[in-house]
Amino acid sequence: MSSTLPPFTLDDLRRVLREAAGADEGVDLDGDIRDADFDALGYESLALLETAGRIEREWGITLDDDTLGEARTPGALVDAVNAHLSAARAA
């Protein structure tokens, strides 16, 4: 069923971050943020928890706490979400 889902992109993450937690005025979220630390982007753990919750809801996956804790950058979180999506497709 989830085989039709497109991959999760950095732009998807930008949108979800804005909806979940807003954006810091001092940060250009549309810039090159792939390898920036979430802390430097102004997102603390609760912002990431809310972001993850929205991704889970929208993409129909479950992200465990370890995945969240280890993904310190947008790039790492995008990769982690896509890994879950691939696993879901394979299943």
């Binding site: 937690a21 807003g22 954006a23 810091d24 005025e25 102004g42 809310e50």
Partner: peptide, 8 residues
């Protein structure tokens, strides 16, 4: 207020 504070 900054945008970060509005959703919370």
């Amino acid at each position: 207020l900054p945008g970060r504070l509005l959703p919370q």
